[in-house]
């Protein structure tokens, strides 16, 4: 049991929840429900939906693969080095995505520092390709993995690692069989957060990967374009995005942020 809060808090909270819900309800109000089937079958919409699912899932997986090792190291660092590394890894989360996209362009674009040599060596051009979308999505999703995982690692009793070592397990085995399985719930949450962020990514994608239907035009980009041409299609796609995100968050219950 918790001590009861003053009644005013409840009224206030109700108003805030209503404020968040109102725009969503207003959007749903405008949706041309009778035509929604036909709208969602349009080629542009189908392409964008598939592309969004594919790129966001790859990006979430990549963010986990890249983020977990960083979190492992970060959770053992202390002092100013740790603060600087953590701030750097968190930056894409608070940075306007357009800035992130521009930064990616200057690094991995055709004339970018790394992009031009990458093209010379491998012939791979990241902008305007599916790989470019994945890169932009991974860039913005990575902080969610690093922060969520590090928080979980720091709250894990370090003596579990000692216990595993005392049983003869080397560091790799300790990490793979004891540490990571112990924070499985947080890793799932990290992956889902990263995926949700990647699914909704707009600014970095359009800036870095452009807006090519069928190869880089994800759902949010398609919604943006449709807002000026076919508003009904935009609304139909928005409904899909809202439903998917809401379903995932509800299914996760309270696990999207490490509870303990």
């Amino acid at each position: 049991m918790r001590a009861p809060l003053p009644r005013q808090f409840r009224y206030f909270a109700f108003v805030v929840v209503a404020l968040v819900a109102t725009p969503l309800v207003a959007l749903l109000w405008r949706v041309p429900w009778s035509r929604i089937h036909e709208l969602l079958r349009e080629q542009v919409v189908v392409d964008a939906l598939i592309l969004s699912l594919v790129t966001s899932l790859i990006a979430a997986g990549t963010a986990l693969l890249l983020g977990i090792p960083v979190a492992l190291i970060l959770s053992r660092m202390e002092g100013i080095k740790a603060s600087i590394t953590r701030a750097l890894m968190t930056l894409p989360m608070v940075l306007p995505p357009v800035v992130g996209g521009a930064a990616l362009l200057f690094a991995f674009g055709r004339n970018g520092v790394l992009g031009s040599s990458l093209e010379d060596v491998t012939g791979l051009v990241l902008p305007y390709s599916l790989a470019g979308v994945v890169l932009a999505n991974t860039f913005v999703a990575l902080p969610f993995v690093v922060l969520t995982t590090e928080t979980a690692l720091r709250s894990l009793d370090p003596r579990f690692e000692l216990a595993a070592a005392s049983l003869g397990a080397n560091q790799t085995r300790v990490t793979m069989q004891v540490v990571l399985p112990s924070i499985k719930g947080s890793l799932v949450a990290a992956g889902v957060l990263a995926w949700a962020r990647a699914l909704g990514e707009f600014g970095a994608t359009i800036t870095f990967a452009g807006n090519v239907p069928g190869s880089t035009q994800t759902m949010p980009l398609a919604v943006f374009v449709a807002m000026e041409t076919d508003q009904d299609a935009a609304l139909a796609m928005s409904v899909v995005l809202i439903l998917v995100s809401l379903t995932v968050l509800v299914a996760l219950r309270d696990r999207w942020w490490p509870a303990r």
């Binding site: 305007y128 452009g210 807006n211 090519v212 069928g214 190869s215 035009q217």
Partner: peptide, 22 residues
């Protein structure tokens, strides 16, 4: 133009060309 990137306005198109991105 199937592989062309669709920009929200004409200034964005010009910027892509003048920066050498397309």
């Amino acid at each position: 133009l199937s592989t062309a990137t669709r920009e929200p306005n004409v200034k964005a198109v010009l910027a892509r060309v003048s920066r050498g991105e397309v």
